[in-house]
Every structure is written in structure tokens, then in C-alpha cells.
Design a protein around this nucleic acid. Structure first.
Lengths: 209, 209
DNA sequence: GTCTATACCAGGATAGAC
DNA sequence: GTCTATCCTGGTATAGAC
């Protein structure tokens, strides 16, 4: 791994830990094992390091989105993976738990969550990314999924978007609550399970109950 | 208003705007209309100003909680206002919208939301307060309310806590999304309305539909 | 591309006159 | 309790040798 990449990685870790202003160039350099002055051979400023991190996260998440078939402006739901279209209610719990755990533990996603919360009011780009990923895209994705499930008869008919928010909002709340507590994942998963059971109880068709 | 109070007020505004590290003592002093050195006659450090703000917010919110009858360790739900016990489903929408708007616009609450998001990872106290107010207490309160409504026959029987999370989580998500966009309150209220209608549709008893 | 040395500045905080 | 002046530290960034 070349030095530039190591700087980016360590900076990502430190910014996620202590925030942008709470991290000094010296700290980053030290973590990499060079002097702070040497760092300026790779980046022309601290801000440029931060920007490179934003790019890095963006790429990582774009890659993930494409893999998972999450819709975005270019990639609408109609093209999404066949997998999701065939999803049935009894699988919803497992898939949700896996996605939830992934969000909590993926090194990019979890650090991005922290940085976004600390820097959202100073940085429009990161603010926009966060809202797109954890709000708009997530809800749009769920809505599309539920629309398909309704058509397939796996879910009661209704306003797919409102149902999607009802389903996703508790996940978002749990992410907020447990984002920084990897030790309490089990507790989080238990609550998540209860919520999804409640969801299935309410929205499932009689023959799935 | 004495100088010490003015300092606290301006500091609250500036910390909410630019964060703790993003706000200098000079800025605060300037906003008050004095020199930065003079400020140290009222507070012995920048940190002490921040702490006084935390105390201020704490008092404000404790006062509100008592007024609204929100349960806490000392003040359990059994003592809560009779008003809530008599709440029926068709009033739920209006009450929720009022509380939601209050959270978005109250000068202490809205600034506290921002500060808590920026400083949560550096400051355990503010982190704890945020979780208590916007997560634990809010959910406990809703659960207690719904338990009463179930007893009174205004709501279908079920796990009050899971139902409370299903109800509250979308409100939390909307607060996250619109906390910093006072210009889009109408959009937020529309979505909130849809969600509560969905909730009533699902959890309301037949005779309320 | 790494180092040492250093410039430069901003921010927190103190001293002491008024 | 406010001011001016000043100190000190730490952080960003550059220069120039190796």
C-alpha cells in the first residue's frame, strides 16, 4: 500500500474518531509513521485529505449500491436485482438483520456515519451524501421493494412509500442509537427483530401469519 | 439581561452554528459586544461556557418535560397528565404535529439537536442527554401513552413498546431530515401526516376507522 | 519522498491599568 | 468589569538539505 493511500486510511480513522478540527495533520502523519511536513508531498492541504476521503467513501458506497441493486438517479428500481423481487415476508427479517449489521460494521459505512454527523453542518457535500444514502435512497429502495411484494401478493396493498418509511424508520433509529456501540449489537438485533415481527404481523397477509 | 447571560446565549447560538472547535472565544465576545479578555471575568474558560450551556439546556428541557408530563427516572408515567390518558386516535395527528413543530422550532431544542450531533462523540454528557430525550424518554413516553390508549379501547391490543417505536421512529427520521431546514416545514408536516394516517389505519380499531 | 528547521497565524488565557 | 497588551501553545504550511 503506497503512502498516499495509507494517509487516506489513517485520516479516515482519525476524522471519524475526533472530527475534522479535532484531528491535526501531525496526528495523521504520526499514525502513518512520517513527519507532518512529508505529508504535504502527497496532499497540498488538510482539506485536500478530507476531500480525498469523501471521494473514497463515495466510490465505496457507489460500488455497494450497484452490487445490492439499490436504485439511484441512474439506476432505477426496474433494473434492480431479481433477488429482491422474489423476496417474501418470512425472509424479510434475515435480510434486514444482515443489512443492519453490515451498516453497523462495515469500516467505511460506520466511519462515514460518524463523520457525517460531526461535519454535516460545515460540509454540504457530506451532508447531501448522508441524506441520499441513509434517507432518500434507502426509502426509495424499500418502497420499490414493497411495491413489488404487493404485486406479488406477499404484502397487503397500500401506499408503498408510507409503508417503506414505517419499515425503515425504526432501522434508522436503531442505527442512530447503536452506531457507536459495537458491544451492544445483540441488544440492537433483538429490538430490530421485534420491530420486524411487528411489521409482519401488521402488513403480512393472513396466509403468511 | 446581564452580561453572563448574554454570553451564554450568544455562545449557544454560535456553538450550534459552527460547533465547539469552530467557534472562537473572540467570536463569542464580539457577538456580545465586549473584548475576549473581558469574557474571562465571567467564565474561567471556554469549556466552562460550554458547560453552562449544557446546564441551561438541561434546565429548559427538564422544565418542558415536567410541563408535558414526560416520564423520567423521578417522574414515572403513572403521574403523567390526565390529558394524555384521555387522548383518542383522531387527536393523535394534531398533537403529533404540534410536538413535531415544537421540536423543530423551539430555540433551545433545535440548537441542542445540532450541538448534540456535532459534539456527541467528544462529549459523553451531551450524548447521554440526547439519547435520553430523543430516544429513551420519547419511546417510553409513547409506550406509556399507547398502553393507556389500549386499556381505554382507543387502540388495538399489542406490544406497546414495539408500537411506540413504530410510531415514533418516523418522527425521529423526519426530525433528522428537517432539523436544519426550517423552510421545508410544510413538506415535513405533509409526510408526517401521511405516516400518522397510515398508523391510524393500521392500529386503529374498526370503530375509529 | 523524507527529514529538520522555521515562518506564520490563530486561539486560549493572563496581567495589570482604568 | 472592561480595556490594551502580551504570552504561550499548537496547528497549518513552506523551504531547503539529503
Amino acid at each position: 500500500m503506497d503512502t498516499k493511500e495509507r494517509i487516506t486510511k489513517e485520516a479516515l480513522r482519525l476524522f471519524a474518531e475526533n472530527g475534522y478540527k479535532g484531528t491535526s495533520v501531525k496526528q495523521i502523519a504520526e499514525a502513518v509513521g512520517i513527519k507532518d511536513a512529508s505529508l504535504y508531498k502527497h496532499f497540498k492541504s488538510k482539506q485536500e485529505i478530507f476531500d480525498s476521503i469523501v471521494t473514497l467513501i463515495n466510490e465505496h458506497i457507489t460500488k455497494l449500491s450497484n452490487t445490492l441493486g439499490i436504485p439511484s438517479s441512474e439506476n432505477n428500481y426496474a433494473e434492480a436485482s431479481e433477488f429482491y423481487k422474489k423476496l417474501e415476508l418470512n425472509e424479510l427479517k434475515d435480510v434486514s438483520k444482515k443489512v443492519f449489521l453490515f451498516y453497523l460494521t462495515d469500516p467505511y459505512i460506520s466511519k462515514f456515519w460518524r463523520i457525517a454527523h460531526m461535519e454535516q453542518y460545515q460540509n454540504d457535500q457530506i451532508h447531501g451524501m448522508f441524506r441520499q444514502i441513509f434517507m432518500d435512497d434507502a426509502i426509495t429502495f424499500q418502497a420499490g421493494l414493497f411495491r413489488e411484494m404487493m404485486k406479488a401478493g406477499a404484502l397487503r396493498e397500500g401506499d408503498a412509500r408510507a409503508v417503506a418509511i414505517s419499515f425503515y424508520a425504526p432501522i434508522y433509529l436503531l442505527l442512530s442509537k447503536y452506531a457507536d456501540q459495537s458491544d451492544k449489537q445483540e441488544e440492537a438485533l433483538n429490538i430490530l427483530e421485534c420491530q420486524i415481527e411487528e411489521f409482519v404481523r401488521v402488513y403480512g397477509k393472513a396466509d403468511y401469519e
